[in-house]
C-alpha cells in the first residue's frame, strides 16, 4: 500500500514537482470596454534570485484567447505545448467551429485538476482572457484546479495588493487608456512591495480584432517616499 508520503515522493529521486524552480510572479487581468487587458512582468526567479529578465508570460491561444501565467515557467511552457496541439487539431477540422475562451478555460481546468489528482501538479496560477462573438471572458485556474470568472482577476501577490485597488476603481466601461493606467497603478504597487517583481513588463490586449502584446517597458518609480527611506520611523522599537 502506498502511503501519502509515498505519493508525494521523497526528495531524492522524484519524478514529480515537489516545489517550483524558476517562477514568475503576479499576473493581472481586467475586463474593459472592448475586451480584456492583461499584464505581467518579465522576471523569472530562481528561488529568491532574479535569474531571468525577459520571460514572456502571456501568450495568445488560438484566435479568441489570451493566457497569462505565474508560477513554474517550465510548466507554463508545457501547458503552451498542450494548447498548441489542441488548437492545431481544432484548426484541422476547418469546419467553421473554433474553441473560444470558455472552452480553453475549461480544458485548462481539467488539466490542472487531473494533474493534482495524480499528485503531480503543474505549478502555476493561470489567467485566461478572451472575446468571442461579442462576449468578454475572464477567468483563472490555480494549480489544484480552483477556478472562477470575474471582472478582474490576479494571481499570487496580486490577489493581496492589486485586487483591493481593482475593487475600488474598476468599472464596466473603462476605456483602453483608463484600463492601462489602472493596470500600471497595480503593477507599480506590486513593484514596490513584491520582491520578485521587476520593472520590465508587458501589457496584452485582446478584443474582437485579436491579440496584441506590447513591447516590454518600464514604469516611472519614485523611491523618495519617507517610509522607504526611513522604514522604522513611526514604529518605535522595530529594526
Amino acid at each position: 500500500m502506498t502511503s501519502v508520503e509515498g505519493l508525494l515522493g521523497c526528495e531524492q529521486d522524484s519524478q514529480r514537482t515537489l516545489s517550483p524552480y524558476v517562477t514568475g510572479t503576479s499576473v493581472i487581468g481586467i475586463k474593459y470596454k472592448d475586451g480584456i487587458l492583461m499584464t505581467a512582468d518579465m522576471g523569472g526567479s530562481y528561488g529568491s534570485t532574479l535569474r531571468y529578465k525577459s520571460v514572456e508570460r502571456m501568450k495568445s491561444i488560438g484566435k479568441h484567447s489570451l493566457l497569462g501565467a505565474s508560477g513554474e515557467i517550465s510548466d507554463f511552457q508545457e501547458i503552451l505545448r498542450y494548447l498548441d496541439e489542441l488548437i492545431k487539431y481544432d484548426n484541422m477540422w476547418d469546419d467553421g467551429n473554433s474553441f473560444g475562451p470558455k472552452e480553453i478555460h475549461n480544458y485548462l481546468t481539467r488539466i490542472m485538476y487531473n494533474r493534482r489528482n495524480k499528485f503531480d501538479p503543474l505549478w502555476n496560477s493561470l489567467v485566461l482572457g478572451g472575446v468571442k462573438n461579442g462576449q468578454k471572458y475572464l477567468g483563472t485556474v490555480s494549480m489544484i484546479g480552483v477556478h472562477f470568472e470575474d471582472n478582474h482577476v490576479a494571481t499570487g501577490f496580486g490577489n493581496h495588493l492589486a485586487r483591493p485597488i481593482l475593487r475600488d476603481e474598476w468599472k464596466e466601461d473603462l476605456s483602453y487608456e483608463e484600463a492601462v493606467k489602472l493596470l500600471e497603478k497595480c503593477m507599480r504597487v506590486l513593484l514596490y512591495r513584491d520582491r520578485s517583481a521587476i520593472n520590465k513588463l508587458q501589457v496584452a490586449k485582446i478584443t474582437e480584432e485579436g491579440v496584441t502584446i506590447s513591447q516590454p517597458y518600464s514604469l516611472k518609480t519614485f523611491w523618495g517616499f519617507n517610509a522607504f527611506q526611513n522604514p522604522s520611523k513611526g514604529a518605535e522599537g522595530t529594526w
Partner: peptide, 9 residues
C-alpha cells in the same frame, strides 16, 4: 519549504 497540498478550503 512549503509542500504540495492537493486540498484547499
Amino acid at each position: 519549504m512549503a509542500r504540495f497540498s492537493p486540498y484547499d478550503n
